[in-house]
């Protein structure tokens, strides 16, 4: 008998999410393996259980999205405030503990949240150095400040990113933790092979989401890579490696810009 398949593969089999060849191979295995048949049965049972109320679930989701979209549209001058509206309107559901709304949290050291509580900060807090510049705004309890290089940050400090650019391009923001681990922060929850976020116009942009620091300690960097062309994993990895090795600026990136802000976590 062939080797058993992972539960996740059986989920993909169930959703016909595999190539014909793989699908057939699993089908053959299932014919002779009761263990995999049991797992598949459990998946099918749960799938069916949820879908017994499919219409109600879909309606609830669409209502939440509609409310989110409405608040996005209203979010011209102060997106932070509108996020609060979006969040409270979803509170009406019975689940109290989703009050801290969450997006796909990514990080070893950081958790991503939608951000209910940043005030918009004065624009001159980041220095614009021809072409591109980046800044981090931090919020601790009621205090809000711009993160300066080598600042000391703490657990539960929330960070929000902003950039200013003289043209369109692709942006990738990553965190390099004290142990060298790299986590993509923008695009949202993206792996390293992301082409980057398309910023399609010059100007100042503030990322909607924020990250909340966990309790790990050590020296960390937030790295901003901005390029006129879609980014590649090699490019991102190379610069991450450089930063880990050298821990210094300036770094040059042909055809683009790179900037990092280092801080201590205590």
């Amino acid at each position: 008998m062939t080797e058993c398949f992972s539960r996740f593969t059986l989920v993909r089999f169930h959703k016909k999410d595999l190539t014909d060849e793989t699908h057939q191979r699993i089908q053959t295995h299932l014919d002779e393996c009761s263990r995999c048949r049991d797992v598949l049965g459990e998946i099918q049972t749960n799938d069916a259980a949820y879908n017994r109320n499919a219409t109600a679930h879909s309606k609830r989701l669409m209502e939440a999205l509609a409310s989110e979209i409405q608040s996005e549209n209203a979010a011209d001058s102060n997106s932070a405030v509108s996020k609060v509206v979006a969040i409270s309107s979803r509170k009406t559901k019975k689940n109290v503990y989703i009050l801290i709304p969450l997006a796909a949290a990514a990080a070893l050291t950081l958790a991503l949240y939608f951000l209910p509580y940043f005030k918009s900060a004065p624009l001159d807090e980041i220095t614009y150095k021809g072409g591109f510049s980046a800044g981090i705004i931090a919020k601790r309890a009621d205090e809000q400040f711009t993160v300066r290089p080598n600042d000391v940050l703490r657990e539960n400090d929330a960070l929000r990113f902003r950039i200013q650019t003289s043209g369109a391009g692709y942006l990738y923001i990553m965190n390099i933790a004290a142990n060298g681990e790299i986590t993509g922060l923008c695009p949202f929850d993206a792996p390293l092979n992301s082409p980057g976020y398309l910023v399609d116009a010059a100007g100042e942009h503030v990322l909607d989401e924020s990250v909340v620091l966990d309790n790990s300690i050590g020296t960390e960097q937030i790295v901003f890579v901005f390029h006129s062309q879609p980014l590649s994993i090699d490019l991102i990895q190379k610069h991450a490696d450089d930063i880990i090795k050298q821990k210094t600026l300036p770094l040059k990136l042909r055809g683009g810009h790179i900037q990092f802000i280092q801080f201590e976590k205590k």
Partner: peptide, 11 residues
């Protein structure tokens, strides 16, 4: 809901 917000970064 989160997927909706993150859809642009789907890679």
């Amino acid at each position: 809901f989160s997927a909706f917000r993150a859809l642009d970064s789907f890679t």
